[in-house]
Design a protein around this nucleic acid. Structure first.
Lengths: 126, 126
DNA sequence: TCGAATACATACTTTTTGGTTAGTACTTGT
DNA sequence: ACAAGTACTAACCAAAAAGTATGTATTCGA
């Protein structure tokens, strides 16, 4: 027989880990399928929403805006809207976002060295 | 109305990302709730199963061995069994695992700088 | 007046990840 | 004979993450 769950230990454990450990904290900000990738693309400089979409053909629009929104809330990217029509929205790294660059580069380097990724340039054109 | 799903785009997308992008590849190896943390603890040197368990009180045994197993399969940690009883199993980083050290350290440093984690030493005693 | 272009929003479903509970094997100490 | 210690294993389930499909607003140019 199975006992009843009263609250999410999953969520609880997550928060414990995030609050007590900087490594987990960092991972919570750049983890998931797409965030690191988006950040990596923004290292190149400001990008419009549509440019990101083109650079990441495999991502769905939902995941792209969802990720961008979370990154914005976490103050890793900055969103700028030009009030024109059709809309013109661009994204670029904040200071904290920029500070992730060494991590992202190190991850790319490690991946290039220890994996057989198809594109050894590390440009991440997914 | 909803169309029928014939195969996992989720899995597909994941594999595309992993195969084409070294950043995503790296993340796929150290992502998730516990792996980075375990690796981080192994930086200190060889640890027994029970030592890891004690160091990470919040992790369940299932997640600990599951993570260790995956890390072993990915050749990031090496598992050594002494055929005694009670069993004596220890884990340590492989060369590839060791090469992750700069990334882990950089993640810890970023977390310490940009978060208010409870333990600013970065020791990750969860 | 209709379509194209841009940047989203929302409701819903599937897939994956993580947690719960209970049990195993083997030997030493009491 | 039985508990304790060590390192697991497996069946089951809940919660989170990711994907699908469809719809919105605005204005310009044809």
């Amino acid at each position: 027989m199975y006992a009843i769950k009263e609250s999410s230990t999953n969520q609880l454990n997550k928060n414990i880990a995030i609050n007590k450990c900087p490594v987990t904290y960092t991972l919570s900000k750049i983890g998931g399928r797409w965030k690191a990738l988006i950040l990596y693309h923004l290292i190149g400089g400001t990008r419009r929403y549509g440019e990101l979409k083109k650079a990441l053909p495999a991502i769905t629009e939902k995941m792209l805006i969802q990720s961008l929104k979370e990154l914005e809330m976490d103050q890793l990217v900055h969103r700028e809207v030009k009030p024109v029509v059709p809309p013109h929205v661009s994204y670029n790294l904040t200071e904290a976002g920029n500070a992730l660059q060494p991590i992202l580069m190190a991850m790319a380097a490690w991946g290039i060295e220890y994996a057989n990724t198809e594109d050894p340039s590390g440009r991440c054109m997914i």
